[in-house]
């Protein structure tokens, strides 16, 4: 069995009447990049805060690196950027990191190392308050990497970055992961998670809906078929894939939950019922589709055939 770096058990946080996090039980394994995925207000930041001991759970517990979350000896081994970088505006970037390095008892050389990693060394002498949003974000990530922590927790690290900055940030996370770094990365950008995460946890309205690999989440590939007359085609396809296995996509196409290998048989069946087949494509379901399905927010172009 893989070593668990994070394990939460029924983690719950209530703010007055609102359940910000509702009985979340998740696990993060050593060496993986774990994507924490959810729309705005889903409870991602609140969960991560509890993992770091910044706030106390209303119920449940979180253990990090085998110990209760929030203990100093645990926090010392986590590097975190939670909901935006928090730095002294009057200090320059380097002095901000030097201050945090002192809290950890690290030498100044460590500061220069992480500044290089986020490509901020040439602006390190400028005051933090004069940084652009993206530079502030990068300084926050640099701070999280101080002292090469066992676990890196990055709450929406690409927030405010331009496309090049986002690509750099992803490359950085991928490079860290290749070196064996365990990373928890929260995001609502699905492409980002799809690209760099090994496993994802999907959270919505405080509930952890699913936890699995990206591939599992996306599910098998589907077939997209454009054929007329459509109602005959629909009947044929439903017989093959089941009533739930066929969806209408857009105005003309039907999406069928069948693998690419089923394409010849599907065409044969349709043709034998005198249906004109105009187009058959293999469509990989995107994480986005899976996500919208799970969170109940219907994506605009897709509805279940009923």
């Amino acid at each position: 069995m893989k070593e668990l770096v994070v394990e939460t058990d029924g983690l719950t946080k209530r703010y007055g009447e609102r359940l910000a996090v509702d009985r979340v039980s998740m696990t993060v394994e050593r060496g993986e990049v774990y994507g924490f995925l959810g729309p705005n207000g889903a409870g991602k930041t609140t969960t991560l805060r509890m993992m770091l001991g910044l706030i106390r759970p209303t119920a449940g517990s979180a253990s990090v690196l085998g110990r209760p979350a929030g203990r100093p000896e645990v926090t010392a081994r986590i590097g975190a950027l939670i909901e935006g970088p928090g730095f002294y505006p009057y200090l320059n970037g380097r002095d901000n990191l030097r201050t945090m390095a002192r809290y950890q008892g690290l030498p100044n050389a460590e500061v220069d190392r992480v500044l290089e990693m986020v490509d901020l060394a040439d602006r390190a002498k400028d005051a933090f308050k004069g940084y652009s949003l993206g530079m502030k974000q990068r300084l926050g990530v640099a701070c999280a990497m101080l002292g090469s922590p066992d676990l890196l927790v990055l709450d929406e690290p690409t927030n405010g970055l331009d496309p090049a900055g986002m690509a750099d940030m992803r490359a950085l996370v991928v490079a860290l992961a290749e070196a064996g770094q365990t990373v928890i990365l929260s995001s609502h950008i699905l492409a980002e998670v799809q690209e760099i995460c090994d496993r994802v946890g999907v959270i919505n309205q405080g509930r952890l809906l699913r936890e699995s690999t990206v591939a599992e989440l996306r599910g098998a590939a589907t077939l997209r078929i454009r054929a007329t007359p459509e109602d005959t085609a629909l009947a044929v396809l439903m017989r093959m894939a089941g009533d739930e296995g066929v969806r209408r996509v857009g105005n003309e196409s039907l999406e069928v939950d069948l693998p690419a290998s089923a394409a010849p048989e599907v065409v044969r069946q349709l043709v034998s019922r005198s249906v004109d087949v105009h187009q058959v494509t293999v469509a990989e379901r995107s994480l986005e589709d899976a996500f919208f399905e799970m969170t109940g927010t219907t994506s605009t172009e897709q509805e279940l055939v009923s």
Binding site: L54, P72, I82, M100
Partner: peptide, 14 residues
């Protein structure tokens, strides 16, 4: 307001 307590409390010292 600056969020620096938050940053400090994640550095390691109790």
């Amino acid at each position: 307001g600056w969020g620096t307590w938050k940053t400090v409390f994640t550095q390691g010292p109790s």
